[in-house]
Deep mutational scan, measured.
Amino acid sequence: TEYKLVVVGAGGVGKSALTIQLIQNHFVDEYDPTIEDSYRKQVVIDGETCLLDILDTAGQEEYSAMRDQYMRTGEGFLCVFAINNTKSFEDIHQYREQIKRVKDSDDVPMVLVGNKCDLAARTVESRQAQDLARSYGIPYIETSAKTRQGVEDAFYTLVREIRQH
């Protein structure tokens, strides 16, 4: 089974770092803004072998026109913010609204991801993020692309959301 996953969120929150940590098991430290990259990885989730087709997208506003296209083809979405960047957390709402509009559905598989949880300088409390996820009816997972904490959990949870859909 193949799953088309799309990673969305503001610029600099760590979308590529999360994806590369999942696929290649290493942490990319330097920031190089993405336009669009796709990665494929075969994994076993709950005993089922599946192929993850992951689209890593641009957070930069100037590429926002490309969003409709990949939102149409994606089956599930990782909505990523950084726990030390309140603005990126506030941006999640717009991504969710755009996904709902493009998919013409209120019920699209999504996982809210709070990345950079290895950093002490948190400005978005776990509780705020949990409340937001609960209001959307989606899971919330904290990750660190640096330490790998929660990385597999985030992507695998999204696959489970798609399966249950």
Results as ranks from 00 to 15, higher is better:
Leu51Lys: 10
Asp68Glu: 12
Glu61Phe: 15
Arg67Trp: 12
Ile99Phe: 04
Val28Met: 13
Lys87Ser: 11
Lys15Gln: 06
Asp107His: 14
Pro109Asp: 01
Gln42Ser: 10
Ile138Val: 10
Asp153Gly: 08
Asp106Arg: 14
Asp107Met: 14
Gly59Tyr: 01
Gly150His: 12
Val8Cys: 02
Glu62Met: 15
Glu36Phe: 08
Glu142Leu: 03
Thr157Gly: 04
Thr57Lys: 00
Ile35Gln: 02
Ile141Met: 03
Thr34Phe: 03
Ser144Val: 13
Arg148Gln: 13
Leu158Met: 07
Asp104Trp: 07
Ala145Val: 10
Pro139Cys: 05
Val113Ile: 08
Phe155Trp: 09
Asp46Leu: 11
Asp37Gln: 04
Ala17Glu: 02
Gly74Asn: 02
Val124Cys: 14
Ala82Trp: 04
Thr143Trp: 01
Ile138Leu: 09
Asp46Gln: 11
Ser64Asn: 09
Gln130Phe: 14
Ala65Leu: 03
Gln21Lys: 09
Cys79Arg: 02
Ser126Leu: 10
Ser105Ala: 08
Gly11Cys: 12
Gln98Trp: 13
Pro33Tyr: 03
Gly47Cys: 10
Val102Met: 01
Val43Ser: 12
Pro33Cys: 06
Val151Ser: 09
Phe81Leu: 13
Asn84Phe: 01
Leu78Trp: 02
Phe89Thr: 03
Arg122Lys: 11
Gln98Ser: 15
Arg134Leu: 11
Glu161Cys: 06
Ile35Glu: 01
Asp53Leu: 02
Lys15Ser: 04
Ile83Leu: 13
Asn84Lys: 05
Asp118Leu: 02
Ala129Gln: 04
Glu75Asp: 10
Ser144Thr: 11
Gly150Tyr: 10
Phe89Tyr: 14
Ile99Ala: 03
Thr73Asn: 09
Gly76Ile: 11
Arg163Asn: 13
Ile45Gln: 13
Glu48Gly: 07
Phe155Asn: 01
Arg122Ser: 10
Glu36Asn: 03
Leu51Cys: 07
Asp53His: 02
Leu119Gln: 14
Lys87Arg: 06
Arg127Ala: 15
Pro33Met: 06
Asp29Pro: 13
Cys50Leu: 13
Leu158Cys: 07
Tyr3Val: 11
His93Arg: 13
Glu2Ser: 04
Gly74Trp: 01
Asn25Met: 11
Ile45Gly: 06
Val13Asp: 02
Val102Tyr: 07
Thr73Cys: 09
Ile83Gln: 14
Val8Phe: 03
Glu142Gln: 12
Leu52Thr: 09
Tyr31Glu: 02
Met66Asp: 10
Gly9Val: 01
Val8Trp: 11
Arg72Pro: 04
Arg67Phe: 05
Ile141Asp: 00
Thr123Gly: 12
Ile23Met: 11
Gln69Asp: 10
Thr123Arg: 05
Thr157Phe: 10
Leu18Cys: 10
Val124Tyr: 09
Ser38Cys: 07
Glu90Lys: 12
Cys79Leu: 15
Gly114Val: 04
Glu30Asn: 04
Ala82Gln: 08
Tyr63Ala: 06
Gln128Ser: 15
His93Ala: 15
Asp91Glu: 10
Tyr140Gly: 01
Arg96His: 01
Ser88Asn: 06
Gly59Ile: 05
Ser135Ala: 12
Asp153Leu: 07
Val113Gln: 00
Gln69Ala: 12
Tyr136Arg: 06
Glu125Tyr: 05
Leu52Asp: 04
Val111Trp: 00
Pro109Tyr: 05
Glu142Lys: 10
Glu61Thr: 13
Gly59Trp: 01
Glu97Gln: 14
Ile162Asn: 02
Arg127Thr: 14
Tyr70Gly: 02
Phe155Val: 10
Ile99His: 01
Glu2Pro: 05
Val44Asp: 08
Met110Gln: 03
Thr57Ser: 08
Glu61Ala: 13
Gln21Ser: 14
Gln60His: 13
Leu132Lys: 05
Gln149Met: 02
Val111Gln: 00
Thr49Arg: 10
Tyr70Asp: 10
Ile162His: 07
Asp106Leu: 15
Asp107Cys: 06
Gly114Phe: 01
Asn84Pro: 08
Phe81Arg: 00
Val6Arg: 03
Leu52Ser: 02
Gly47Ala: 10
Ala10Leu: 12
Arg127Ser: 11
Gln69Glu: 15
Glu142Tyr: 01
Asn115Arg: 00
Pro33Leu: 05
Ser105His: 07
Val113Cys: 05
Val151Ile: 14
Cys50Tyr: 12
Asn25Tyr: 08
Tyr39Ala: 04
Thr19Ala: 13
His93Lys: 14
Ala129Phe: 12
Ser126Cys: 11
Lys100Asp: 07
Lys116Thr: 10
Leu5Asn: 03
Gln69Ser: 11
Ser105Pro: 06
Pro139Glu: 11
Gly11Thr: 11
Thr86Cys: 11
Asn115Ser: 12
Ile35Trp: 05
Gly9Leu: 03
Leu22Arg: 05
Asn25Leu: 07
Leu55Asp: 14
Glu161Phe: 09
Tyr63Phe: 05
Lys15Arg: 01
Thr143Arg: 00
Glu2Met: 03
Ala120Ser: 11
Lys100Pro: 00
Arg148Trp: 15
Leu158Ser: 01
His26Thr: 12
Asp32Phe: 00
Arg40Ile: 13
Val108Leu: 08
Leu52Glu: 04
Gln98Cys: 13
Gly74His: 01
Glu125Ser: 10
Glu2Asn: 02
Ala65Thr: 03
Gly76Lys: 00
Asp29Gln: 13
Lys41Pro: 13
Gln164Glu: 13
Thr86Lys: 13
Asn115Trp: 01
Arg67Val: 15
Gly47Asn: 08
Cys79Pro: 00
Asp118Thr: 02
Gln24Leu: 06
Gly11Ala: 14
Lys4His: 10
Lys87Ala: 10
Ser105Ile: 15
Gly137Thr: 06
Ala65Ser: 10
Tyr140Ala: 00
Arg101Tyr: 01
Gly76Phe: 13
Asn84Gly: 14
Met110Tyr: 03
Gly11Asp: 11
Leu55Arg: 02
Asp107Arg: 14
Glu90Asn: 13
Gly114Tyr: 00
Lys41Trp: 03
Glu90Asp: 08
Asp29Thr: 10
Leu51Met: 14
Lys100Ser: 09
Leu52Cys: 06
Ile45Trp: 13
Glu62Leu: 15
Tyr31His: 09
Arg163Tyr: 08
